[in-house]
């Protein structure tokens, strides 16, 4: 029991890094995803093609490779660009490049969710808005967006949990600086010290599980708020979708 509590204490600073990576990339990814979803639905063929290609490429390749690719790309610009500008310590820092890659990755997955929701917005409501003489901007702000976010929210919750889980490969691809270790690196280093796989990996798993449940809870609260006008308010149910 004592070793278990001790272990929980050892992992407590580590989970903050995972939470930081997720928290830093979710808001940016959200905004970027909305733009991408609108781009995908755009009538301009160039914008539509580009957004489609981006979403396909980042959904069709592993995050692990994306990390390596973008990090080595940033490294190759180091001598020519970052060093002279004096920002290489910042650009090449895992705490910057980690959220950057996660943002690019989650934006693609989220854009696919939002695009699906965008196409599911009832046509009648948009036609009614147009009949009222709303401008395109007004239609989006007052009709399309509220519908979209309500339709997309359960799947988006799922994506956020997947993103949080994806933060565990950040430090497998990027250099670990000093004591800045996330859950997986902590578990791996402790394992290499005393070879107690069951204890270390279980505690890391426990942290992931707890934070996932907190995410489900918080996003459930938001969902209830979004659906507050509906006759039967959906309860807070642990009803995850199973696939990303």
């Amino acid at each position: 029991m004592d070793t278990f509590l001790n272990e929980l204490g050892l992992f407590a600073p580590a989970v903050l890094f995972n939470i930081y990576f997720a928290a830093a990339s979710i808001p940016l990814g959200f905004v970027f995803a909305v733009l991408l979803a609108l781009g995908k639905a755009s009538s301009n063929p160039l914008i539509s093609r580009l957004s489609r290609g981006y979403v396909y490429a980042f959904r069709g390749s592993p995050l692990f490779i994306q990390f390596f690719m973008l990090y080595s790309l940033a490294l190759s610009f180091n001598v020519a660009v970052w060093k002279p500008w004096g920002i290489s310590w910042f650009v090449l820092h895992p705490l910057f490049i980690g959220p950057l890659v996660l943002t690019l990755n989650t934006a693609a997955y989220t854009a696919e969710i939002f695009y699906g929701a965008l196409r599911a917005v009832p046509r009648g409501e948009i036609e009614a808005a147009r009949a009222y003489g709303m401008s395109g901007r007004q239609q989006f702000r007052h009709v399309i967006w509220p519908n979209l976010i309500r339709l997309a929210w359960p799947a988006y919750t799922n994506e956020v949990v997947f993103l949080f889980h994806a933060t565990c490969i950040v430090y497998f691809a990027l250099p670990v600086i000093g004591m800045q270790k996330d859950l997986m690196i902590t578990a791996k280093e402790l394992f290499e010290r005393d070879y107690n796989a069951f204890l270390h990996f279980s505690v890391a798993a426990l942290y992931f599980l707890v934070v996932s449940l907190v995410i489900f809870f918080l996003f459930g609260l938001v969902y209830r708020r979004l659906m507050r006008h509906m006759p039967a308010a959906p309860g807070l149910r642990y009803a995850p979708k199973w696939l990303r």
């Binding site: 889980h165 994806a166 565990c168 490969i169 497998f172 997986m184 578990a187 791996k188 394992f191 796989a197 069951f198 990996f201 890391a204 798993a205 992931f208 599980l209 996932s212 449940l213 995850p240 199973w242």
Partner: peptide, 16 residues
């Protein structure tokens, strides 16, 4: 598997 990252399982199983 829903609450725990797949990468963690993937690493844990061979070691265990």
């Amino acid at each position: 598997v829903r609450g725990v990252p797949d990468v963690l399982f993937f690493l844990f199983f061979p070691l265990a």
